[in-house]
Every structure is written in structure tokens, then in C-alpha cells.
């Protein structure tokens, strides 16, 4: 398969940074990423799962050209991120939504913030206005376009941030724990928006998270541990592998744990149940058969 269909392709990607003590002397080298080989197809929905310190955020920053590989190479849509000529194009191709909603909104009015990216790219004024309108409608924030971000809820702010990334017309959106600071309702709104963008606009989504429930949305999951990809597979496969998850300091979603408990107790459920609806449906069918 050619490099073109792979929006993200990393070869033995590694990143090191020096740990310093208070006087600035190097006390050790931390290898935050250690030989990552990943290929992600355009249009897919991929989750990167990992406990704190597993290197998943460092990986995300590489995808956006905010950090550069110490070793190995990373191609975004065929562009080598290490080449500084590509930096702006890489950032435009792979947009990033960060964790803290307050710290990534630059302007004082919602629509001006969404226009910030296109302004930097030198898009002509009339096109910026059109894009901003489209993107705010896409994320359901159009009615708030003249509001101050300070008066929005966390989930709304994150949707504005998503709109701000969309306005740059990316092929890929990276969410670096973008839902971690949100309440359940806000989290659902943001995830619904992301899923819709993935299905309708075929934008590649890289969801970086430590919430198991979010992983169920993905087509494919990479589990990271100490800078390495410890496991990869479909969400179903990942959740079945309880031992591996525990080793990575993660836990399968509650509903999968219940399903596995039921299986152990002798109820013939199929493998890989991880939604409440799915489990309910299977149990109903089994009950009918009896």
C-alpha cells in the first residue's frame, strides 16, 4: 500500500528529553517515545490509550509538528515532520485540540477565535467568514458566535476549539485528552461532534485518552506503555485482553467487565461486548431463547 493512503506513518519514532535538576544540570535522559511504528489510514477513527506518563501526549505533539523526532521518522500525509519547511503544512493537515479548554482559546469572541487559524494561514477575508460560519454550524456552536468564551461551558469551549481546528481544513484531528476536564454531558457533546465529523466528512480522528468508554467509538486502538506500543487491535480485542490492560495500568470498561463476569458464570455471551445497549440486547435474546 502506498504512503498516500496512510495519513500517518511512523518508522521507529523515538523522542528523548533531558531531565534537569534545579541548577539546570542534566540528571538523566527520559525516553518518552521508544520505537513507535504506526500506520494510520486516512478516514479512520483511532484511539491511543495509555496511563499517565505512557508517552501518548508526546506522541500527539509529534503528529502536530510541535515536537520533532529524536530518532526515526514520522510522515503526516506524506510529509516528513522533521523538515522545518513542512511544519506549517503539517500543522494545517493535522489539527490539534488540547486538554484545557481555557488555555487554547485565543480570541475574546467565539467567531474570532475560530478565524484565528485561517488568519494565520493567510486565507482571504471572504473565505474566512464562510469557513467560520460552516465550522460553527458543523459543531453546533453557531448561535454562540458572538459570545465571549468565558461565558461558555467546558464542553462548549471544546466544541469551539474543534471548530477552530476545522476552519483550517485539516485532514486529521488529534484530540489530546480533550474531554478529560469536561462533565459527562459536555464530553458526550464533543464526542458526538467528533464522530459525526469522522463519519460524514471522513476526517481522520486520533483520540488520545485514558477513558475506556471513549475507546469504544474507535475503529482501532493503540495501547501505549512506557513509550512503546504495547498492544494494538480493535476495541473488542483490547478489552478482552484484561491481563495486558492491567499491566498498562488500565482497566476495561465496567460493562465489559460485567460481560466477562457473566461469561465466567456460564452465560454464553459473544466476545467483545462493550456498550450497555449491546449487552442488554444480547441478554434479551438469550432470555427469549430460554
Amino acid at each position: 500500500m502506498g504512503i498516500k493512503n496512510k495519513i500517518i506513518k511512523s518508522e521507529n519514532l523515538a523522542h528523548e528529553y533531558a531531565r534537569r535538576d534545579e541548577s539546570g544540570d542534566v540528571t538523566g535522559i527520559v525516553r518518552a517515545l521508544d520505537g513507535i511504528d504506526v500506520q494510520i489510514e486516512a478516514g479512520s477513527f483511532v484511539a491511543v490509550l495509555g496511563a499517565n506518563g505512557s508517552g501518548k501526549s508526546t506522541f500527539a505533539k509529534h503528529l502536530n509538528g510541535l515536537l520533532f523526532p529524536t530518532e526515526g521518522t514520522l510522515y503526516i500525509d506524506g510529509m516528513d515532520t522533521a523538515d522545518s519547511e513542512n511544519t506549517l503544512a503539517v500543522r494545517q493537515t493535522a489539527g490539534m485540540v488540547f486538554q484545557n479548554p481555557d488555555n487554547q482559546i485565543i480570541a475574546n469572541i467565539v467567531e474570532e477565535d475560530v478565524g484565528f487559524g485561517p488568519e494565520n494561514m493567510g486565507v482571504p477575508t471572504d473565505k474566512i467568514l464562510k469557513r467560520v460560519e460552516e465550522c460553527l454550524k458543523e459543531t453546533g456552536m453557531y448561535s454562540y458566535r458572538r459570545h465571549s468564551p468565558n461565558h461558555l461551558s467546558g464542553g462548549q469551549k471544546q466544541r469551539v476549539a474543534v471548530a477552530g481546528v476545522l476552519a483550517m481544513r485539516p485532514k486529521c484531528i488529534i484530540l489530546d485528552e480533550a474531554t478529560a476536564m469536561l462533565d459527562p454531558a459536555g464530553r458526550k457533546n464533543v464526542l458526538d461532534t467528533i464522530v459525526r465529523l469522522n463519519k460524514k466528512e471522513h476526517i481522520t480522528v486520533i483520540l488520545i485518552t485514558h477513558y475506556m468508554e471513549e475507546v469504544t467509538l474507535a475503529d482501532y486502538v493503540y495501547v501505549m506503555k512506557q513509550g512503546k506500543v504495547a498492544y494494538s487491535g480493535t476495541p473488542g480485542e483490547v478489552f478482552q485482553n484484561v491481563g495486558m490492560l492491567r499491566e498498562c495500568r488500565l482497566e476495561a470498561p465496567q460493562i465489559t467487565q460485567i460481560a466477562q463476569g457473566l461469561q465466567k458464570a456460564g452465560i454464553p455471551l459473544t466476545q467483545g461486548v462493550f456498550t450497555i445497549e449491546g449487552l442488554a440486547k444480547e441478554l434479551l435474546e438469550l432470555a427469549k431463547k430460554r
Binding site: Q104, I106, E112, G122
Partner: peptide
């Protein structure tokens, strides 16, 4: 970081909304 991620690179070549 967020400004970097959104292609901010100073005032040159910048348009206005």
C-alpha cells in the same frame, strides 16, 4: 503551544477575518 498548533507565525502573511 495552542497558537503554534494553529499555525501562528507572527504578523507576516497574516490575513484578517
Amino acid at each position: 503551544l495552542a497558537m503554534d498548533a494553529r499555525c501562528y507565525h507572527g504578523g507576516s502573511g497574516r490575513t484578517k477575518m
